[in-house]
């Protein structure tokens, strides 16, 4: 896990190799980063399912799927919620991309990417655009309480080869 001098985790930056992971998305299905070699991947870490706003970050990404598809990009949502919460949340918000459960060991993948918040026990709102070779090309850690939107993701995807 990436740590700064103060012991606070620091987000992986552009140029770093994206750490490998395999996480469950349903009880009997899991997703690995290597499944997407050859395609750009957008990794969107977020604190929790069921945040009390409508058309939140994940709902917006679902709406923007046609835009992401123009870049042949896969989008993966990641939080520490379990698969059952993810399934219910995904159905309720009509999400059309996988939500990954960083549940056991809790937050392990979030820690690998330097975006785990020890204080809250959740992932931070953080975004990564990973190129088709598995290299992080853009990362962004959102300030507390601020939903980052999609403008940065689209600009980063445009900047890929």
């Amino acid at each position: 896990m990436a740590k700064s001098a103060e012991g606070k985790s620091t987000i992986l930056k552009a140029g770093a190799k994206a750490p490998h992971f395999t996480l469950h998305t349903t009880p009997d299905q899991s997703v690995s980063l290597k499944d997407f070699v050859g395609r750009p991947v957008v990794l969107a870490f977020y604190p929790a399912d069921w945040s009390p706003v409508c058309s939140d970050q994940m709902g917006l990404y679902a709406q923007l799927m046609p835009e992401f598809k123009k870049f042949e990009a896969e989008i993966l949502g990641v939080s520490v919620d379990g698969i059952w919460s993810h399934l219910a949340f995904s159905k309720d918000r009509k999400l059309n991309f996988p939500l990954l459960a960083d549940f056991e060991p809790k937050g392990a993948v979030s820690r690998l990417y330097g975006v785990y918040e020890d204080r809250t026990g959740e992932s931070a709102r953080a975004l990564f655009v990973i190129d088709k070779k598995g290299v992080i090309r853009w990362s962004y850690l959102s300030p507390d309480g601020v939903n980052p939107g999609a403008d940065g993701i689209l600009s980063a995807l445009e900047g890929l080869d």
Partner: peptide, 9 residues
């Protein structure tokens, strides 16, 4: 809106 950082309504 998307390009300006609109992230919900």
């Amino acid at each position: 809106g998307v390009r300006s950082g609109v992230n919900g309504t």
